[in-house]
């Protein structure tokens, strides 16, 4: 039972960055912009969270910095994808590479070494709602959580509400499906897309902060290790729906937790690598329609040209 609780807490922690980033992906893609840059935005978020925490000694300011850094990185994607109508995938690849280099550069400039930063004194690795730990049995679980885990679920609820229950959400979905139709009823397609891509950056930025501030209290080069792409997988697996993406993230997080703790769980006959490939293979199967069918928003990845033809 103790092992199981620990496994669950670990799964929740591992799912957290995936949830944030997948939600970010949903905002961007629902409005029609493919966001391959999530990985890079996470890197920037993780780095600037630590950087600002180091200088202000306030991890929450660090989170704010991650959000700002994420939004600005996403703004670059937005300009390339929306106004310049560039290839969104190329732009994403470029931003990922840029984030890797710029953070490594700044790391060296600030900490005078490469590889990883020093740990910050105050991070957000502990459970903020300590009273929950008094609950029998489940208390153990809550003790293993971080503020980010709670925030992730709040973000799911808010995303769901915004996308499905507000006029703004209706317009986002319209712009991602049929931008011209939205245009003819007076909706500013570009504006909606800019806002969505930047929201996507904010969420992926928090996701990065949850990796650095929420786990090891430091920034390490390569610490995202493809989590941005797993988040994209979760988004697709969840069919571009916040609840679906959350469930997919939890599933992928759980698979990773099992893989990490395989030996203590007594699972030795399944190679750990097979558990690691699970998110990717699942996504391929869903995308190609072998199990279920995930269909992207119709205008996803297609630049919109204003003007009236």
């Amino acid at each position: 039972m103790v092992i199981f609780i620990a496994l669950l807490a670990s799964a929740l922690r591992l799912a957290t960055p995936l949830i944030f980033s997948a939600l970010g992906g949903i905002f961007s893609e629902r409005s029609g912009v493919v966001n391959i840059a999530i990985e890079g935005i996470m890197i920037n978020g993780a780095f600037f969270a630590i950087l600002v925490t180091k200088f202000t000694d306030s991890p929450w300011l660090g989170v704010l910095a991650a959000m700002v850094a994420g939004a600005l990185t996403a703004l670059l994607l937005a300009v390339l994808a929306i106004h310049l109508r560039g290839n969104q995938v190329v732009a994403g690849v470029a931003i990922n590479l840029f984030a890797t280099s710029i953070t490594a550069f700044l790391l060296e400039m600030v900490w005078k070494r490469s590889g990883q930063t020093d740990a910050v004194a105050h991070a957000l690795t502990g459970n903020p709602l300590t009273f929950l730990e008094k609950i029998p049995v489940l208390g153990e679980l809550f003790a293993g959580l971080t503020p980010f885990v709670y925030l992730a679920f709040v973000a799911v609820a808010i995303t769901y509400y915004v996308i499905y229950k507000t006029p703004f959400g209706l317009r986002i979905r319209a712009v991602g499906e049929h931008p011209r139709a939205a245009d003819t009823v007076g909706i500013n397609v570009y504006k909606i897309r800019y806002i969505c891509v930047m929201i996507s950056g904010v969420l992926a930025g928090i996701s990065g902060a949850s990796l650095s501030l929420g786990t090891v209290s430091l920034f390490r080069e390569g610490m995202t290790s493809g989590k941005g792409f797993i988040a994209i997988a979760a988004m697709i697996f969840g069919k571009w729906h916040p609840i679906g993406a959350m469930l997919a993230s939890l599933f992928f997080g759980f698979a990773e937790a099992v893989q990490i703790q395989a030996s203590s769980l007594g699972i030795n006959n399944i190679p750990s690598e097979f558990l690691q490939t699970l998110p990717y293979i699942a996504t391929i199967l869903v995308l190609s329609g072998f199990i279920g069918r995930a269909v992207a928003p119709k205008a996803d990845g297609i630049p919109y040209e204003k003007g009236h033809r």
Partner: peptide
């Protein structure tokens, strides 16, 4: 790395 990525950003643009 920064130079490399900026080259691609330009190309994307």
């Amino acid at each position: 790395g920064i130079i490399q990525s900026i080259i691609i950003i330009f190309i994307a643009a």
